[in-house]
Simulated scan of single mutants.
Amino acid sequence: MQYTLNKTICQHVRMVAVQRPFFAGPPVFTIGSGLSRSNPTQPTGFPLGIDNKKPRVWMSLSYQVRMDDEQCYLAVHSSYCGIFAEADLSTCLCHFDFEREKEHYAGAHLQVHGSSPALDKLNRGHDVGRTLDKLHFPVGGKRFRPSLEDVIEFLVSERLVDAREGWEQVVEDGRDQFQRQQLKAAMRRNTAVVQAWVRDHGQAMVRE
């Protein structure tokens, strides 16, 4: 994450991992900016910029990771990536969230801050007055949720931030690595599907 950010839309960002204290169960680590032993759970925001100009955009980025149920692989338990227009993170544009064990709405989701006349008309009953940022837009599910590289591409493509020369390759390489990891995880959880695919296509692969 640190490499990807500093090679694309940031400079001098430092991401660290700190074990979550006083947690009953397997160790959980929080990854983010500004963490330390005295501040193990509350990452700080950081500016998005590649020069010394006054930054216009800030990001708040954090991950909680722990071993999976089989104690074989490190898995993301939750993540948060928020985009803000103020250094104190008081004015939010949107945030991309992942909560592995969420039940009442999509675990991988996007929340957008703003007004919506359509939502004002659609709200009814107890939802009257509900604002746009309270909606959880699903984005790809547990396996194929947006990566940090997708967020960077969004920020650059929509002209919200400037990027370093060569940022496209950094994003593409990182996204490819993320998608490969997610595909392997999906294969581990769906071995019957993998076996069926190999049975149906294995001979063709050998001939190729």
Rank of each mutant, 00 (worst) to 15 (best):
L93G: 06
E165Y: 08
P43A: 12
K142Q: 15
K121S: 13
T131I: 10
V57C: 03
P138N: 03
K102V: 01
N52R: 10
N39K: 07
I152V: 11
C81T: 09
A75L: 06
R56C: 08
G114H: 09
D150F: 03
G140S: 08
D133C: 12
H95I: 11
P55C: 03
I152Q: 00
D51F: 03
S79N: 09
L110D: 08
L89I: 12
R143D: 15
A85F: 04
Y73K: 14
L119S: 14
C92K: 10
E101C: 09
Q64Y: 05
L119C: 05
I152G: 07
V151P: 04
E70M: 05
L61P: 07
N39Y: 05
T91E: 14
C92L: 12
L132C: 15
L160E: 00
R164K: 14
L110Y: 09
L61I: 04
H95A: 02
R124G: 14
L48W: 06
D127N: 15
N39E: 13
R145C: 02
N52P: 07
K121D: 11
G129D: 11
R159A: 13
D51A: 06
L148V: 12
Y105F: 12
Y80Q: 04
A75M: 10
R164A: 04
G129P: 12
G140N: 10
R66A: 10
V128C: 08
Y63E: 14
E153T: 07
L132Q: 13
P40Y: 03
S60K: 14
K53T: 11
Y63I: 06
E103F: 03
G45Q: 05
H109T: 00
H113I: 15
L48Y: 06
M59Y: 03
H113Y: 14
K121Y: 15
V76G: 02
C72R: 02
G114Q: 05
D127W: 09
F96T: 07
F46A: 02
G82D: 11
E158M: 08
F98Y: 13
L135P: 05
F144G: 11
P40W: 04
E86H: 03
K54W: 02
L89G: 05
E101V: 04
S36V: 01
E158V: 10
I50H: 11
A106F: 01
P40S: 14
K53Q: 14
A85E: 10
L110Q: 14
L119R: 06
H77T: 04
Q64L: 01
L132H: 06
R145T: 13
